[in-house]
Design a protein around this nucleic acid. Structure first.
Lengths: 347, 347
DNA sequence: CTGAAAGCGCTTACAG
DNA sequence: CTGAAAGCGCTTACAG
């Protein structure tokens, strides 16, 4: 593999000049630049990113932190991961996986060994223990999720409260009144998963404002729990609407609606867009917008990195005068109902 | 942040000696070693992994290659990812995500910029274009998946053929004869996804050996397609058994069985263990064993790395005399049926 | 506009 | 058993 020295020799310039061409940070005379570029092509030269990292004290790597347990509740986790990787790469950053059981330890080690320039945290919970090392740490972090206290880091997520309100507004617009809200299991709520609580708060709050009648059910994610929770609701015609936020019921609900011959129940809920896209669901859904969250997360992190005093340097002297940390709420939108009939015809 | 020089000064030894202690590759007198260790603790020193990588030409990073499109069919993708990261980390390796649309380009860039010591490929298809750069490349790779031709790399996967045979044997053991096989959509088969073809081959082959009567249905993954495919089968009592390999139908099948009052149909299929674990499925399943695949994949890759002539060096001279490449098949096992009744009682 | 030199933080023969 | 020196492949002030 060619090194910068090989290129310099081939182009009959100094290594500095080759470097200037590669980084693009310095003007190089067109004629010289062309000689260098030609040599680069001829030798198939690529900058060794490790060496560059050492020289610049920028690893161009972001650490993606997510833990094991919750991911079974989030089959759409890979959507976030892929989107994050995509955006990071578009900006020249790699994504490295920090997914051990001991996330806090992972973060501390990554900080100490300087393997990453920044962190992205998924599956954020209230009082997330991972925030502590990050707040002391020397590199920026961004949360996908919105705990009450996100001091010291930027955070982005769907506006789950607004999503809950939107769902209720849809119901209200149909003149319906009596609403069953199907949420995640209590076990998930107890982990402190921020979205579970926020959606529910939106639903219940808006219902109260509109004088509507909401009852919340926490529904397990297994076959048995789902049947047990939903069947009585679907069999009781006094329910006028069903609002849900529980991915596990999504593929099953359509069949249950058919089985119970439910005809006059309005159904609307939050679900990952890939589900809505592929499933031809017979009801409206609200998009969780994972790609948007990912895009904004990466963007906020890059922004911090651009402002930071380049790596480990400049850490002495006057305190860096940090820009206030952000909390970005993504506005939820409705996805139109898929028409089963159309689906069949379109083939 | 402390550097090796700080530690050397604090311990009143040379940097070489500190390095010897940190790497553990050289004997250091106990008394000296203790001084060094004390200094390390005092200064909270951690080796800068980038600098070490440059010096050793080992990045201690593995590239995880998977593309966008198929992952929507594989909600269990994150199980593999997490397991791979876990095993890699246990061996001191990081995992970096190579998930762009242009996987081949990602691989070539990673090779050129020397960002990884090895590659792990997921979602392998027949004639996978990613294999070409890897075969020329200078670092080892392992496939999770078994294309016909895996020359030049190690490969591991569940023995899907055996899984298909196992399913049929279970059916045969019950004295049943007429079998409906529900597979993945034709669109997935056409991508060349290796598992889709292999399971089917196992089912059909074994059925032929046993003189059984199998009909294969390729079932779409959306609500409409699933209903359309399954309903007629469930309504036709002449089917004695249903063998499936299509994750999308798993959560829906139990309800359909209830709805159609199916009583005498034996059901068995392949599905990710987390589904079986959480869903209380009313039928037997065969475990896809993602953790085992991940473990063996990492292990095979580390084995290659251990044998390799340490990074970019030693690439000249006699050709490296590679050990034959392996194809590891993981034996499938049955997961007992969850009893709905028990589930309810255990609460 | 270009180059010589120092430095990023390590490791590893090689002497002693 | 320990240390001085060279080197991994870059970048970046600093001269000129």
């Amino acid at each position: 593999m060619a090194t910068i020295a090989d290129v310099a020799k081939e182009a009959r310039v100094s290594r500095s000049t080759v470097s200037s061409v590669m980084t693009g940070r310095k003007y190089v005379a067109p004629e010289t630049r062309q000689r260098v570029e030609k040599a680069v092509r001829k030798l198939r030269y690529t900058v060794n990113s490790g060496a560059r990292a050492l020289a610049t004290s920028r690893t161009m790597t972001l650490g993606l932190v997510f833990s094991f347990r919750q991911s079974r509740f989030v089959p759409s986790a890979s959507t976030y991961v892929v989107a994050l990787a995509q955006y990071a790469r578009a900006a020249g950053y790699r994504l490295t996986l920090l997914t051990g059981d001991d996330s806090v330890g992972e973060i501390e080690r990554a900080l100490a060994a300087k393997t990453v320039d920044g962190f992205i945290l998924m599956e954020v919970v209230e009082d997330d223990p991972r925030l502590e090392p990050l707040r002391r740490g020397t590199v920026p972090a961004v949360l996908v999720g919105l705990p009450e206290d996100s001091a010291g880091v930027d955070a982005v997520d769907l506006d789950y409260v607004a999503a809950g309100r939107l769902a209720v507004d849809r119901v209200h617009a149909q003149g319906r009144h009596r609403v069953a809200m199907i949420g995640w299991p209590g076990s998930l709520r107890r982990t402190g998963a921020t979205y579970a609580l926020r959606f529910r708060r939106g639903v219940e709050g808006r219902a109260r404002e509109l004088g509507m009648d909401v009852t919340t059910f926490e529904c397990e994610v297994d076959q048995h729990g789902i049947q047990e929770c939903l069947t009585p609701i679907l069999q009781d015609p006094s329910w006028e609407a069903l609002v849900f936020h529980n991915d596990a019921i999504v593929p099953i609900l359509p069949i249950l609606l058919l089985r119970e011959n439910v005809e006059n129940l309005q159904v609307i809920g939050l679900c990952p867009p890939e589900m809505a896209r592929e499933q031809w669901l017979p009801f409206e859904t609200i998009d969780t917008k994972p790609e948007e969250s990912a895009g904004i997360a990466v963007q906020m992190l890059l922004q911090r990195l651009a402002e930071a005093p380049s790596g480990a340097r400049g850490q002495s002297g006057s305190s860096p005068e940090v820009r206030p940390f952000e909390r970005v709420l993504i506005e939820p939108t409705l996805t139109a109902m898929s028409e089963w009939g159309n689906a069949a015809e379109e083939g």
